[in-house]
Design a binder for these strands. Structure first.
Lengths: 344, 344
DNA sequence: AGCGGCTTGGAAAGCGGTTTCTAAAGCCGT
DNA sequence: ACGGCTTTAGAAACCGCTTTCCAAGCCGCT
C-alpha cells in the first residue's frame, strides 16, 4: 500500500513551496499562471487529493452538516433528509445522518459526537421525551456547539427556552388547520367535527387553534360536542367517529388532525352506511403517502418536508448578525382530492 | 464566542502532560487510577470534547462510513441506508450520505470527496451508466481509496474488473428466481410464464437463469413462447400479459421478474376476466411496498435490503487478509401472500 | 547497597494542511 | 541607474491530537 502523496510531495514535484500549492488549490490568492499550471500538472501526476481533516483542523470549517432524526425509512423523515442532503450539496457541504429511534440518551450522545466533528450545522428533527437531565445536558451541548461556531437547528420541536442558542423551523400548524377548516366552511359546511389530538401536545393544540380561528372568522360557533380529543391513531379516528354517529351528532364534515384518524373516520362512516364525500366531507392533515391511496382519495393538508430540510440547512449556513436564534414557520397547502364536496 | 478548550487546557488544569490526557481519553495504555480521576474531573469541568479532525489527522482512521446512492426517499435505498446507518453506529462509526440521482459525474465527484474525507468505507449502491471515461476515473479513484486504506464496496452493481479493488455485495438473483419458480412448480404448475427484463441486464439475466434452472430441475421444458422480455414497467407487464392472452397461450402461472410487472399482469388478467389466484397464480420479485397492497396481496421474492446495508459495512470494516476483494451473495426468501395457489 | 524489570508520566516529533509574515522580483517613472 | 510600489513566492508558525522514545520511580532480588 503506497502512501498517499501530501502537499509537500506536490510542492517538491512542481518545484514550488507548499504555501504556493495550498494557494493554487484553495485560494483566491494571486498565483502566476505559469506557476499555477506547474502545480496543477503535479497534482494530476500524483493523483493528489487534499486531506479534509488537515484542512478542517487548520482552517475553521469542516464543511459537514449533521442530520439527527428518528429513523431514515419513515417517509416523513426520508423527505426531510432528502431536503437536507439536497441543500447541503448545493452549499458544498457533506451530510452526516444519524438516527435516534426516539432514545434521548442516544440523541445526546450524537450531538456530542457532532461537537467532536465540528459540524457546521446540527439539525435535530422531531421530538423526544425530555426530562430534566436531558434538558441540562442538551443546554450544555448547545452552548458548546455555539462556542465552536456550529449552528443548531430544531425542526418541528419546541425550543428549550428563549435563550437557547438554536434556530427553530416548524410547520405553521395553526395556519394549516385554519386553511383546512376554511376550505370546508367555504364549501358551505357549518357542522364540522374536529378529530383532535391529546390536549397539551403543542402540534395538535395549534391545529385545534387554527380550527377555532377559522370557525370564528366565519362566525360559526364551535360546538364542543363536535370537538374530540384522542390519540390520533386510526383506531381512535374510527372509535370517535362511531361514537359521534351513535350519539346522533349532527355534522356534515370532519376535519381530522392527521391522515390516520381520517382513515379511521372514513372506515367508521362506511360501516355506518354514510358515503364520503356525498354524505360527509372529510379532510386530513399531513398528506401522508396513504392519503391518495384511500378511497375516495383523501384531501389533506400537505406539509413541505423537503422544504423544511432545505430551509434548515440554508438558515444554519447563512452567516450574519443574530442569525443563531431565529424562528421560521413554513406555510402549508391543501392537497385537493376527492373527499370534500360542497354542501348544496 | 469563547474558544473551545483543547487537550492542553485539560492537561494544565489536571496538572499532567497532554500525553497523559490523551491516554486517559482514548488509550488502553495504563494510567494510574489517581491520575485518571484528576484528568476526568478536568475534562468535565472544562466541558472538553476531542477534536475529531485532529484525531483523524494524527491517528489513522476517520471513523466515517460513506454511503453513495441514487436518492434517499425511494424505499429500496432508504432501507439500505437504514442498514448501513445501523451497522455503522454498531461499529462506532458515523455515516455520511450522498445522493447521485443517477449522474455518473456526480458519483465520481462524491467518491473523490470521500477520498478527501478518508472515509473508512465507501459504499456505492445501485448502478449508473458507465462510459470509458467513467471507468478510467473510477478505477483511479478506487486505487486511491485503497492506497489511503479505505474500503470500497459495490452493492448490486457489477465490478469494474477482476483486479478492481472493491468488495462486492449483491442479491442472489438467480437463487431468488429459482426459489420463486420452484415454489410455483411445487404447487403443481407446469406452464409458467416468465415476465423477464431486457436481455443483457445482468440482474434480469440472472433471474431468467434461475427460472431456467428450476424448470430444468423439475424436468419441465421451457416453452420459449412463455418467456417474454420487456422493460419491466407496469405497462409492460400489462401489455405482455394481454398479448399472451390474446394469442391464446396456455399457462396457469406467471413469474414476474419484478413487482411492477406483476401488478400490470394482474390488471391484464382481471381485464380478461381471469381470477388471481383461482385461474392464474402469480409471483413477483423485489417485495416492494406495493406487493401487500395489491389485491390479492402479491406473493413476492423478498430482498433483505437492510441486511445488504449491514453486510456492506461489516465486510468493509473487518480487517484481515485479502479482505479488500471479496464477493458476497445475499440469500432471499419468498414473502408468501395470496396470489399463488396449488394447481389441483 | 546495587541492579534489572516494570509501571507510569513527560517531551517532542509528527499528521497535512492554512496563513501570516517577510523578502525577492518585476515594473514604473524620473 | 535608482527609489518606491505591487506582485508573487517562500519560511515557518500554528491547528489539536497521537504516539514514540525516554527517564524517573518503585519493586523485589541477589
Amino acid at each position: 500500500m503506497n502512501k498517499r502523496p501530501t502537499i509537500r510531495d506536490v510542492a517538491a514535484l512542481a518545484g514550488v513551496s507548499v504555501a504556493t500549492v495550498s494557494r493554487v488549490l484553495s485560494g483566491d490568492y494571486p498565483v502566476a499562471g505559469n506557476t499555477r499550471t506547474k502545480v496543477q500538472r503535479a497534482v494530476r501526476e500524483l493523483d493528489y487529493v487534499v486531506n479534509a481533516h488537515a484542512r478542517a483542523l487548520s482552517g475553521a470549517t469542516s464543511n459537514v452538516v449533521a442530520l439527527v432524526m428518528y429513523d431514515v425509512v419513515t417517509p416523513f423523515f426520508a423527505h426531510i433528509a432528502s431536503g437536507v442532503e439536497y441543500q447541503a450539496t448545493e452549499s458544498d457541504r457533506l451530510c452526516l445522518v444519524c438516527t435516534t429511534h426516539g432514545d434521548p440518551d442516544r440523541e445526546l450522545e450524537i450531538v456530542k459526537l457532532m461537537r467532536e466533528q465540528h459540524a457546521d450545522a446540527v439539525i435535530l428533527v422531531g421530538g423526544v421525551l425530555m426530562n430534566d437531565d436531558y434538558r441540562e445536558r442538551m443546554y450544555r451541548y448547545a452552548k458548546g456547539l455555539e462556542d465552536a461556531g456550529s449552528r443548531l437547528v430544531l425542526c418541528g420541536r419546541p425550543s428549550l427556552g428563549p435563550d437557547f442558542p438554536a434556530i427553530t423551523v416548524e410547520y405553521d400548524n395553526a395556519g394549516g388547520a385554519y386553511a383546512a377548516t376554511s376550505h370546508l366552511l367555504s364549501a358551505g359546511h357549518r357542522r364540522i367535527v374536529l378529530l383532535g389530538g391529546p390536549v397539551g401536545n403543542t402540534t395538535f393544540d395549534a391545529r385545534l387553534d387554527g380550527y377555532r380561528r377559522a370557525m370564528e372568522a366565519f362566525r360559526v360557533p364551535v360546538d364542543p360536542a363536535l370537538v374530540v380529543h384522542d390519540d390520533m391513531s386510526q383506531d381512535a379516528g374510527f372509535r370517535q367517529t362511531q361514537r359521534l354517529l351513535a350519539a346522533g351528532a349532527d355534522f356534515t364534515a370532519i376535519f381530522a388532525a392527521n391522515d390516520l384518524a381520517a382513515a379511521g373516520a372514513m372506515r367508521a362512516l362506511r360501516a355506518a352506511g354514510k358515503r364520503v364525500p356525498d354524505d360527509v366531507s372529510i379532510i386530513g392533515y399531513d398528506d401522508t403517502p396513504m392519503a391518495p391511496e384511500l378511497f375516495p382519495a383523501l384531501t389533506s393538508v400537505h406539509l413541505p418536508h423537503e422544504e423544511l430540510g432545505r430551509t434548515a440547512v440554508k438558515l444554519a449556513l447563512q452567516r450574519g448578525e443574530n442569525s443563531t436564534r431565529q424562528h421560521v414557520m413554513l406555510g402549508t397547502h391543501i392537497a385537493m382530492r376527492d373527499s370534500v364536496r360542497p354542501l348544496i
